[in-house]
Write a protein that binds this DNA or RNA. Structure first.
Lengths: 105, 105
DNA sequence: TCTAAGGTATGATGACTATCGAACCTTGTC
DNA sequence: GACAAGGTTCGATAGTCATCATACCTTAGA
């Protein structure tokens, strides 16, 4: 039986729009969200994202994305997996993801 | 003949999504945009916005909104008028305004 | 001409942000 | 056990942000 993730995630109802917009305002974070949005149901390994930033900076962006409620993260063995909180976001902020994705895809 | 506004506004094609999202991430600014969006074609006097902040802070927010391309401002006599850049925004960022407005209206 | 109202300009402040490198921890693999 | 890879933690830094009070400017009206 796989252990539950020890990583903390906010309840989607506690997430506020300001934090989400702030998270999406950063180009690197928005790129991650857009790549995830092309395959909304699929987990992806964090190490596969190509971004021109240090890995400690990546850690920072993962945290911002996670705490803003945009992504779900799961630790597996040595690595981290990341996934869009697709259903949660559609329920909490209907249309937002689709709109953002349509603007840059 | 009324003089052309001397206030500078960015070309809508020079506006980038990060700046718009950053502008919308602030609750006070988002409140202004939402109030304007209820009457998108209508100018409104800046002094009629009720916000719990100092007037110098209001000036700051007007500038952020203007430079991010969200609003158009016009000086008339002693006062300032503000208006949503509705058509520009619909063309540049289709769906964005409607989505944001629907989330909090 | 005096005055009140709408706005701007100018610092200043405290908080937060993105970024980095270096050190460290953990996990999987020889 | 040794080692590499994936991530985190920990300062540190430089920049930006929202906020304020004060002083000032401009316009309209008495």
């Amino acid at each position: 039986m796989a252990p539950a993730s020890e990583i903390e995630h906010p309840d989607i109802d506690d997430v506020d729009l300001s934090s989400v917009l702030l998270a999406l305002a950063d180009p690197h974070r928005r790129q991650v969200i857009l790549e995830l949005a092309r395959d909304p149901k699929t987990e992806r390994q964090c190490s596969t994202f190509v971004l021109p930033i240090a890995k400690s900076t990546k850690t920072h962006h993962w945290r911002v994305l996670r705490e803003s409620g945009l992504v779900y993260q799961r630790a597996v063995g040595n690595g981290l997996y990341i996934q869009l909180r697709d259903e949660d976001l559609r329920r909490r902020f209907p249309g937002l993801l689709d709109t953002i994705a349509a603007l840059e895809d």
